[in-house]
Amino acid sequence: MQNTITTMTAFLRFHDLTKSYYEGEVRRVVLQNAHAEFQPGEITAILGKSGSGKSTLLNLISGIDAPDSGQVWVDGQDLTALSERDRTLFRRARIGFVFQFFNLIPTLTVGENVSLPLELNRIPRPEAQQKAQDMLEAVGLLDRWRTFPEKLSGGEQQRVALARALVHDPLLILADEPTGNLDEETGAQVMSLLARLAREQNRTLLMVTHSREAAAHADRFLRLSHGQLLPEQ
């Protein structure tokens, strides 16, 4: 079964992607022969019920998990052909993550959190600091440079998380329920910001969400149901 047409020019594409887990003795198939492709600068929302495999799909696309079968291509690189370590290094350089629970490092200040991906990518400190400051300015939190995350509101924490996800110029941004832990108004603000930054920087954004409001910022919609990825009508 083919859910979408794939082309060799797509920035992100996956093909025949299958993933299953064992729950005790029972094998549960989460994804079954899923296909899709995504163009640079495209914003896509993946919808689906809880437990439908949305997060699993993000894990496979980012190389966090390996599929049972199938291939994932990001910017011409077959992630399934890489070792676990090489997938980690690829993720470090090319992918930005936004998590539902923000996942900021509580022992680092806002500035240090945003600088972390740059340090990991061995960007010289002065340049890293400048880029981190620019990014924080873009999300409106430059004045919180020395603040620890616990002093920030949920919305502010997610804006810092956006800055951390984008600061090292990743080609692909993966967002897992980016507004799932925010109130409606704050969620809308964060989502607008994320979509604006992704468009300004021409990044491919793939977000998993339950929220219709969040999904409204997307260029297209896919629904994950019974292991199948289908275009949302």
Binding site: S62, I64, E84, R85, T88, L89, R91, R92, A93, F97, F99, F101, N103, I105, P106, L116, P117, L120, N121, R164
Partner: peptide
């Protein structure tokens, strides 16, 4: 554990 998970996600190697 969640912290290590986050660090691994953003590119820390084992």
């Amino acid at each position: 554990r969640p912290l290590f998970g986050t660090l691994r996600s953003i590119g820390y190697t084992r």
